[in-house]
Amino acid sequence: MNSKSQVEASSLDTVKLLLAVGIIVSGIYGFYYLDSYSQLLRVLGLLALVGVASFIAYTTAVGRTVWEFASSSKVEVRKVVWPSRQETMQTTLIVFVMVLIMGIVLWLFDMMLSAILKALTGTG
């Protein structure tokens, strides 16, 4: 993480964020209100409004902080050592086998308790 000092959000930033949220909400409303138009046009219009709202939100201190966080997250994901296909298949097989074994054990336990209950109540 970056050790930069926190930037105080001004009232203009709050107005910009509210404007961005308003644009997105109005875009979603318009998407459903204008259902007589082509869905492609409605989706493209909604994406354009989301892009405009994102640009407005980016101009705020909070928006820049979120962008920096996303950028640093992308760098951290590149550092992850991902398992190979063979390791993934082996782990998946172990999980399936353990789920099967636990299912059988719980089924046997249920059958045993059911037999005991039937013997105690005399309904068997």
Rank of each mutant, 00 (worst) to 15 (best):
Met1Leu: 12
Ser3Pro: 10
Ser3Arg: 12
Lys4Glu: 15
Val7Tyr: 07
Val7His: 04
Glu8Ala: 10
Ser10Val: 10
Ser11Val: 15
Ser11Thr: 15
Thr14Glu: 14
Ala20Val: 06
Ala20Lys: 00
Gly22Ala: 03
Val25Ile: 15
Val25Arg: 10
Ser26Cys: 08
Tyr29Arg: 07
Gly30Trp: 00
Gly30Arg: 00
Phe31His: 02
Tyr33Pro: 07
Leu34Asp: 12
Asp35Phe: 06
Ser36Gly: 09
Ser36Leu: 08
Gln39Asn: 12
Gly45His: 03
Leu46Val: 01
Leu47Ala: 04
Leu47Gly: 01
Ala48Val: 07
Leu49Gly: 00
Leu49Lys: 04
Val50Pro: 04
Val50Trp: 08
Ser54Thr: 15
Ser54Tyr: 14
Ala57Lys: 02
Thr59Ala: 06
Thr59Gln: 06
Thr60Ser: 05
Ala61Thr: 12
Val62Trp: 01
Arg64Thr: 08
Ala70Trp: 12
Ser72Glu: 14
Ser73Leu: 15
Glu76Lys: 08
Val77Glu: 10
Val81Gly: 03
Ser84Glu: 06
Arg85Phe: 08
Gln86Ser: 09
Met89Tyr: 09
Met89Phe: 12
Gln90Thr: 09
Thr91Ile: 10
Thr91Ser: 05
Thr91Met: 05
Leu93Thr: 14
Ile94Lys: 05
Val95Cys: 01
Phe96Ala: 06
Val97Lys: 09
Met98Tyr: 08
Leu100Met: 08
Met102Tyr: 13
Gly103Gln: 11
Ile104Cys: 04
Leu106Trp: 02
Trp107Cys: 07
Leu108Ile: 13
Leu108Val: 13
Met111Tyr: 14
Ser114Leu: 04
Ile116Trp: 15
Ile116Leu: 07
Lys118Gly: 10
Thr121Asn: 11
Gly124Val: 13
Gly124Arg: 06
